[in-house]
Design a protein around this nucleic acid. Structure first.
Length: 292
DNA sequence: CCTAGAACCTGCGAGC
DNA sequence: TGCTCGCAGGTTCTAG
């Protein structure tokens, strides 16, 4: 479950069901699931054993479990990853990659399940503010109280790129993925191919406001799930798919003006937009030179 | 330095 | 029925 609201739903589940417990046993069933852990699967398991898990944290689409002793288990769900709290007796999932057991008698275990293996877990040292060192390059997310709106606008103006690319750039703003980018752009009536350099302060502030609004709305109903791939730690789906205005709505009427929504291939995926509310930028041409 | 595109995986549904 | 193709909520590495 890829984007910020879905990852936050998982983080809350981990905080409730895993934080405070002590690891006894770790089983790595697929090496790709720990590929970001340089020491490999055996090292991952050995370093985790015996440690108590602190409060689950998140930045953008990354989440982590701080351990006593100053390190942390960093997790990313990729495209199809799930973190599930399951009864120890429950049958293994087909794509179970990592199992973590605890020393208490709750008889539940933490499972990392991932069909496409783009996600994974790894162990890292943490910086003084508690951030795993491996994600120092990830920007704060828009729901972080310390997110710097002015710096974000300045960065947009400096980039020679387009607005959707910028929204998906996790070093500029984290947590936004393909769904919430399209939703925020639809709300802001901005075409995905608009150059960021032309955005005014009010325009980028408005866009940022829509990013926050749509993410908070999704969070309130447990996130977006089209299928059983995207679930919380108890395997339950969210309901925000019913409230999507742009993503996945090709040929359906725009909820503002009734025009048929369009889908365009974009960066090996898709962009959904209203051709009337979200007018494309003027065709690219060379910038006029200053008259001499 | 910066930006755009391909690569990394598995599975599902549509079309032939 | 069975095959191929296109498509999927992401990140990272490479080429230009």
């Amino acid at each position: 479950m890829p984007e910020l609201p879905e990852v936050e739903v998982v983080r809350r589940g981990l905080e409730q069901w895993v934080s405070g417990r002590t690891v006894t046993c770790v089983e790595v069933l697929h090496p790709r699931a720990v590929r970001r852990h340089l020491g490999g699967g055996d090292d991952f398991a050995a370093r985790l054993r015996g440690h108590r898990i602190g409060t689950a944290r998140r930045r953008g689409k990354y989440l982590w479990l701080p351990l006593d002793g100053g390190s942390a288990v960093l997790g990313h769900l990729g495209m199809s990853g799930q973190l599930l709290v399951q009864p120890e007796a429950a049958a293994d999932e087909k794509h179970l990659r990592i199992r973590i057991r605890f020393d208490d008698d709750l008889e539940t275990e933490l499972r990392f399940v991932d069909q496409r293996t783009f996600g994974g877990l790894s162990l890292h040292d943490t910086t003084p503010d508690g951030l795993p060192d491996a994600i120092a390059h990830i920007a704060r997310d828009p729901l972080d109280p310390e997110f710097d709106d002015v710096a974000f606008h300045t960065a947009l103006r400096l980039r020679r790129t387009t607005v959707k690319r910028a929204l998906l750039d996790q070093s500029l703003i984290s947590g936004v993925g393909n769904i919430y980018a399209d939703e925020a752009l639809w709300r802001a009536r901005l075409h995905y191919d608009r150059p960021t350099a032309g955005l005014t302060r009010p325009r980028s502030a408005e866009l940022l406001g829509h990013v926050r609004d749509v993410m908070n709305a999704a969070l309130a109903v447990g996130g977006t799930s089209f299928d059983s791939l995207y679930v919380n730690v108890n395997g339950e789906s969210g309901y925000f798919d019913r409230s999507l205005d742009a993503y996945g709505r090709e040929d359906e009427p725009c909820r503002r003006c009734g025009t048929a929504m369009r889908r365009r291939p974009w960066m090996n995926r898709s962009s959904y937009f209203c051709p009337r509310c979200q007018r494309p930028p003027r065709p690219a041409r060379s910038l006029p030179r200053v008259a001499s």
